[in-house]
Design a binder for these strands. Structure first.
Length: 106
DNA sequence: AACCTGACTTCGG
DNA sequence: TCCGAAGCCAGGT
């Protein structure tokens, strides 16, 4: 695990309930805006080991990126259970749910 | 060390 | 708005 990976993990684990972060967003907060792919790798490979809230990470268009159908449905369900609303095209309003990386109550 | 993989992002048509 | 190609990072083999 590199320092970047550690940061990515910590950031993912700090995403508040009801908020989401894009892959690129996580990477940026971790220190490298171009490490979005590393984020996806970590979610797929390290979630079980590190117990990460993987479902709070979506792509930059505000949609779910998981390719597996069941995983896609699961993520949507989990997010909806936290109060996040999906549009008719399964998109999330990032202007509302995107986490800025800081305390959302300022 | 080289090559492949993955739930990305950006750019051009 | 959608599709394809290219660039990016680090772990696995």
């Amino acid at each position: 695990m590199t320092q970047l990976s550690q940061n990515i993990v910590n950031i993912i684990k700090s995403i508040p309930v009801g908020k989401v972060l894009t892959y690129g967003g996580v990477a940026a907060l971790a220190g490298n805006p171009r490490a979005a792919r590393q984020v996806s790798w970590l979610l797929k490979s390290q979630t079980k080991k590190l117990d990460l809230p993987w479902f709070r990470v979506i792509n930059g268009r505000g949609t779910i990126s998981i390719k597996q159908y069941d995983g896609y449905i699961l993520q949507k369900k989990l997010l909806e259970s936290e109060g996040i609303i999906f549009t008719t095209t399964d998109k999330i309003d990032l202007n509302i749910y995107l986490w800025n990386g800081k305390c959302n109550k300022l």
